[in-house]
Lab assay of single mutants.
Amino acid sequence: MGFKLLSKLLVYLTASIMAIASPLAFSVDSSGEYPTVSEIPVGEVRLYQIADGVWSHIATQSFDGAVYPSNGLIVRDGDELLLIDTAWGAKNTAALLAEIEKQIGLPVTRAVSTHFHDDRVGGVDVLRAAGVATYASPSTRRLAEVEGNEIPTHSLEGLSSSGDAVRFGPVELFYPGAAHSTDNLIVYVPSASVLYGGCAIYELSRTSAGNVADADLAEWPTSIERIQQHYPEAQFVIPGHGLPGGLDLLKHTTNVVKAHTNRSVVE
């Protein structure tokens, strides 16, 4: 069995187990497998329904001669939608809004960016022009300005110390501490036991640490421990890039980060 097929099978099995364990909360999309990078042309966006009122959005972007996937989250909030992270750029984010209108038909009224990198804030200006209120932590807003990236308009308070959590509509926002970046936030959907790890969490097929220019490698494993301790009931975990899975993604990420750190020390 090929690795790609095995990865998709694991996603399907995880979703099936969740649907059985929580039949009222989960209505997993039966329309197909989780979209992969090879299936999404740059400039297009796919939506994948995880649970009743919960979707991931998947886009792709060219970077350094390669094409990478990027995940975000959409959560229903009454007759409105909360968006977590842009679709990595203005063109993708405009396509995301169009796809949401086509498939869901509810307005996106608020959006949260989970850290300051372009795959999370690139497209904020498109959201703002569409009347979406954009939010991020003060740290993310400051770092985005320093980096020359787009800056969300509103500040999220109460997320300055490791372990801080605040309720934001249908989700809980959690600051686990520094990891992929010093400002990275985690998003949890309690009604569906869905954990969105953003770039602080890796997919299972990833074996290298990737972009760690703004990471705190020493603190990252401790931050992941905080996530595990705060959300032990999480059933569906979405990484910032690639295929979702279960809580095993947290341990896998820790292993990859520690291996990278150990290699760096040896070198």
Results as ranks from 00 to 15, higher is better:
3 F>W: 07
3 F>G: 11
3 F>K: 15
3 F>N: 14
4 K>I: 10
4 K>F: 06
5 L>T: 15
5 L>Y: 15
6 L>P: 08
7 S>D: 07
7 S>T: 08
8 K>Y: 15
8 K>S: 12
9 L>T: 13
9 L>K: 15
10 L>F: 15
10 L>R: 11
11 V>W: 08
12 Y>W: 11
12 Y>S: 10
12 Y>T: 12
13 L>A: 14
13 L>S: 15
13 L>V: 15
15 A>V: 08
16 S>L: 12
18 M>W: 09
18 M>N: 15
19 A>C: 14
19 A>M: 15
21 A>K: 15
22 S>H: 10
24 L>G: 10
24 L>R: 11
25 A>W: 11
25 A>T: 13
27 S>I: 10
29 D>I: 11
29 D>H: 10
30 S>A: 14
31 S>R: 10
31 S>N: 10
32 G>K: 10
33 E>P: 09
36 T>I: 13
38 S>G: 11
38 S>Q: 09
40 I>Q: 07
41 P>F: 07
41 P>I: 07
43 G>K: 06
44 E>T: 14
44 E>G: 14
45 V>A: 08
45 V>I: 09
45 V>G: 04
46 R>L: 08
47 L>I: 13
47 L>K: 02
48 Y>P: 05
50 I>F: 07
52 D>C: 06
52 D>A: 11
52 D>R: 10
52 D>W: 08
53 G>R: 09
53 G>Q: 10
54 V>K: 02
54 V>H: 00
54 V>M: 04
55 W>K: 01
56 S>A: 15
56 S>G: 15
57 H>S: 04
57 H>C: 01
58 I>L: 08
58 I>K: 05
58 I>A: 06
59 A>I: 07
61 Q>R: 14
61 Q>T: 08
62 S>Q: 07
62 S>M: 09
63 F>M: 14
63 F>C: 05
64 D>K: 11
64 D>A: 12
64 D>P: 07
68 Y>H: 08
69 P>Y: 13
69 P>F: 08
70 S>E: 04
70 S>P: 05
71 N>Y: 03
73 L>V: 05
74 I>G: 02
75 V>M: 02
76 R>Y: 04
77 D>I: 01
78 G>Q: 09
79 D>Q: 10
80 E>A: 09
80 E>F: 06
81 L>S: 01
81 L>Y: 00
82 L>N: 04
82 L>R: 01
83 L>Q: 00
83 L>M: 09
85 D>N: 03
86 T>G: 01
88 W>T: 00
88 W>R: 01
89 G>E: 00
89 G>P: 03
89 G>R: 01
90 A>Y: 07
90 A>C: 01
91 K>S: 15
91 K>I: 14
92 N>I: 04
92 N>S: 08
93 T>E: 00
93 T>V: 00
94 A>E: 15
94 A>I: 14
94 A>H: 12
94 A>Y: 13
95 A>I: 10
95 A>R: 10
95 A>H: 11
96 L>H: 02
96 L>Q: 00
96 L>E: 00
97 L>F: 02
97 L>V: 01
99 E>W: 06
99 E>A: 14
99 E>L: 14
99 E>V: 14
99 E>D: 08
103 Q>K: 14
103 Q>R: 14
104 I>L: 07
105 G>R: 11
107 P>W: 03
108 V>S: 00
108 V>M: 00
109 T>R: 13
109 T>V: 13
109 T>H: 10
109 T>G: 10
110 R>K: 12
112 V>Y: 01
113 S>Q: 05
113 S>A: 13
114 T>I: 00
114 T>G: 00
114 T>F: 01
115 H>A: 01
115 H>W: 00
116 F>W: 15
117 H>S: 00
117 H>C: 00
117 H>E: 00
118 D>C: 05
120 R>L: 01
120 R>S: 08
122 G>D: 13
122 G>I: 04
122 G>S: 09
123 G>A: 04
125 D>T: 09
125 D>C: 04
126 V>G: 04
126 V>H: 08
127 L>G: 01
128 R>C: 08
129 A>W: 08
132 V>C: 02
132 V>G: 01
133 A>Q: 14
134 T>V: 05
134 T>W: 01
134 T>F: 02
135 Y>E: 00
135 Y>W: 11
137 S>D: 01
137 S>E: 01
138 P>E: 10
138 P>W: 08
138 P>F: 07
139 S>V: 13
139 S>L: 12
140 T>V: 03
141 R>L: 10
142 R>N: 12
143 L>S: 06
144 A>L: 10
144 A>Q: 03
144 A>F: 04
145 E>H: 15
145 E>Q: 14
145 E>C: 07
146 V>Y: 13
146 V>K: 14
147 E>M: 14
148 G>P: 03
148 G>Q: 08
149 N>W: 06
149 N>I: 07
149 N>Q: 12
151 I>C: 03
154 H>R: 09
155 S>V: 15
155 S>I: 13
158 G>W: 05
158 G>Y: 05
158 G>H: 13
158 G>N: 12
160 S>P: 07
160 S>F: 09
162 S>D: 11
162 S>N: 11
163 G>Y: 05
163 G>S: 07
163 G>H: 06
166 V>D: 04
166 V>Y: 08
166 V>C: 05
167 R>A: 12
168 F>T: 01
168 F>I: 07
168 F>C: 05
169 G>D: 05
169 G>C: 06
170 P>S: 09
170 P>V: 06
170 P>T: 07
171 V>W: 02
171 V>K: 01
171 V>M: 03
171 V>G: 02
172 E>M: 05
173 L>I: 14
173 L>T: 02
175 Y>A: 01
175 Y>Q: 01
177 G>N: 02
177 G>P: 02
178 A>I: 07
180 H>P: 01
180 H>Q: 05
181 S>H: 00
182 T>Y: 14
182 T>P: 13
183 D>N: 07
185 L>I: 11
186 I>Y: 01
186 I>L: 06
186 I>P: 00
187 V>P: 04
187 V>M: 05
188 Y>R: 01
188 Y>P: 00
188 Y>A: 01
189 V>G: 01
190 P>H: 06
190 P>G: 08
191 S>A: 13
191 S>T: 12
192 A>N: 06
193 S>E: 14
193 S>L: 15
194 V>P: 00
195 L>M: 05
196 Y>A: 04
197 G>H: 03
197 G>P: 06
198 G>S: 06
200 A>R: 03
200 A>I: 07
201 I>L: 10
201 I>V: 14
201 I>P: 02
204 L>T: 09
204 L>G: 12
205 S>L: 09
205 S>D: 14
206 R>A: 15
206 R>T: 15
207 T>I: 12
208 S>K: 10
209 A>M: 09
210 G>L: 04
211 N>P: 09
211 N>E: 11
211 N>H: 11
213 A>Y: 08
214 D>G: 13
215 A>T: 07
215 A>V: 07
216 D>T: 08
216 D>K: 08
217 L>Q: 06
217 L>G: 04
218 A>Y: 14
218 A>K: 13
223 S>L: 03
223 S>W: 02
224 I>F: 05
225 E>H: 14
226 R>E: 04
227 I>Q: 05
228 Q>G: 10
229 Q>S: 13
231 Y>I: 02
231 Y>D: 02
231 Y>M: 05
232 P>T: 09
233 E>I: 09
233 E>G: 12
234 A>Q: 01
235 Q>T: 13
235 Q>N: 09
236 F>E: 07
237 V>L: 05
238 I>Q: 02
240 G>T: 02
240 G>I: 07
243 L>C: 08
243 L>T: 15
243 L>P: 10
245 G>T: 03
246 G>W: 03
246 G>S: 11
247 L>T: 14
248 D>W: 06
251 K>L: 13
253 T>W: 00
254 T>I: 13
255 N>R: 12
255 N>T: 11
255 N>C: 06
256 V>C: 03
256 V>K: 04
259 A>Q: 13
260 H>S: 14
260 H>V: 11
261 T>N: 15
261 T>R: 12
261 T>W: 12
262 N>E: 13
264 S>N: 15
264 S>M: 10
265 V>W: 14
265 V>H: 10
266 V>C: 05
267 E>A: 05
